[in-house]
Computed example of a mutant assay.
Amino acid sequence: MKIFKWGLRVLPFAYMAAIWIMSSLPSDQFVKLPDSQIDHTIKESLHLIEFAILYVLLVLAMLTRRQAFTPTMNIACALIAALYGISDEIHQSFYAYRSASWFDLVKDFTGISVCFYFIRGALFKEKFRRLGNLLRRV
């Protein structure tokens, strides 16, 4: 169980490193679909989940601590994910084969906000009981 908790604590940093590395590479470095419009649409929609996943990983890491997870800590996790999204867009702007845009940031923040809504509801608002029970077991 201790290894699992330490794994959850390290996972956000490994994920952040993976985001940083992938942002340094061309968007078709790993996968390129035959239809360029579908390829573009799928890759653009990934912004909705990329930083939402980071936020969830940060929450899970914080839940492994003995200290109680508070609404303030929840907001801090969302802000860290959002700030990392901003830094990622800035990072991408230095590469000719990548693009940075305000719309990408809106998609990043939207994904974070949706997950924030569910996690806040589950842990602090008595909504989404199954999710709350699952999160409390971490």
Results as ranks from 00 to 15, higher is better:
Tyr15Ser: 10
Ser24Lys: 04
Asp108Arg: 02
Tyr117Arg: 08
Phe109Lys: 01
Ser45His: 06
His40Ile: 03
Asn74Phe: 00
Leu60Tyr: 04
Ser36Cys: 02
Leu46Lys: 04
Ser113Phe: 14
Ala76Glu: 08
Lys43Met: 07
Ser101Gln: 07
Arg137Trp: 12
Lys127Gly: 04
Lys43Phe: 03
Ala122Asn: 05
Met16Ser: 14
Asp88Asn: 11
Arg130Ser: 13
Ala52Ile: 14
Ala17Cys: 12
Asn74Thr: 01
Glu44Gln: 15
Phe30Val: 13
Asp28Ile: 03
Leu57Trp: 00
Gly121Thr: 07
His91Pro: 12
His91Gln: 11
Asn74Ser: 05
Gln92Ala: 09
Glu44Ala: 14
Lys5Phe: 14
Asp104Lys: 07
Asp108Thr: 00
Leu105Ala: 05
Ala17Arg: 05
Asn74Lys: 00
Arg120Lys: 10
Ala81Gln: 05
Val114Phe: 11
Gly85Ile: 06
Arg66Ser: 12
Tyr15Met: 10
Ala14Asn: 01
Lys2Ile: 10
Thr72Glu: 12
Thr41Phe: 13
Phe118Glu: 06
Lys107Asn: 01
Ala100Asn: 14
Ile21Phe: 10
Trp20Met: 11
Pro34Gln: 11
Lys2Phe: 12
Gly111Gln: 09
Arg98Ile: 05
Met22Thr: 15
Leu135Asn: 09
Glu89Gly: 05
Arg65Val: 02
Leu58Trp: 02
Cys77Met: 03
Arg98Asn: 12
Gly85Ser: 05
Phe103Thr: 12
Arg130Val: 09
Pro12Gly: 05
Gly85His: 05
Ser113Gly: 15
Ala76Gly: 05
Gly85Ala: 05
Tyr97Trp: 08
Met1Tyr: 15
Arg129Leu: 11
Ala14Thr: 14
Phe116Cys: 10
Asn133Trp: 09
Ala122Trp: 01
Leu123Asp: 10
Ser93Ala: 11
Glu89His: 08
Glu50Ile: 12
Phe4Cys: 10
His40Asp: 11
Ser23Tyr: 06
